[in-house]
Amino acid sequence: MSGPSDSELVSAAQEGDRDAFADLVRLHHPNVYGLCLGMLGDPAAADDAAQEAFLSAWKALKSFKGDSAFGTWLHRIAANKCLDALRRSARRGEDSLDAILEGGGSRSESVQAGGRGPEEAAAAADLSAKVMGSLSDEYRLVLTLREVQGLSYEEIMTVMDCSLDSVKARLRRAREAALERLRHFSGGGGVL
């Protein structure tokens, strides 16, 4: 059984159909929340950013022309909300991922550590939070889009509003930076 497509729901929502928009929220919430959680590290902050993203999407829905997939357009809005949240927290002298580090990684278990034993998952999440928290916002975004969300290069181009070459370059630099941080936080051991 398949419901109405994204484009059908978008068309209805553009006419003011709140039920159609609610369906769009239900469909895209997991991905948008996943992006926000990957970027911000904190479930509450991620929930707030995801809400703001959907509200902005509702307000800007009339301007959506369908040049890209609705989900990609939504990712772009959510990414901007996350970057705004990171800038705000930086101005306040805090960082949600840094706060996780200071808190011993207790909140980071839900970020990127599924499918392991509790201790191993906690250690992996702690390491992931340390590495991601030490990266620039731009690197965090491109890595989250690619490695967590699994977006194609073309989709990342749309979300980040840059060229294909720029996406590749940013991703390469972000990976190098993440590897370097991973070696640092791992104490230089392992095969890395």
Binding site: Q112, G114, A124, L127, E147, V191
Partner: peptide, 14 residues
């Protein structure tokens, strides 16, 4: 190296 790092860094949350 990156493939291994990716496995350690990015485990999608449920």
């Amino acid at each position: 190296a990156w493939e291994e790092a990716r496995g350690r860094l990015f485990r999608p949350a449920p």
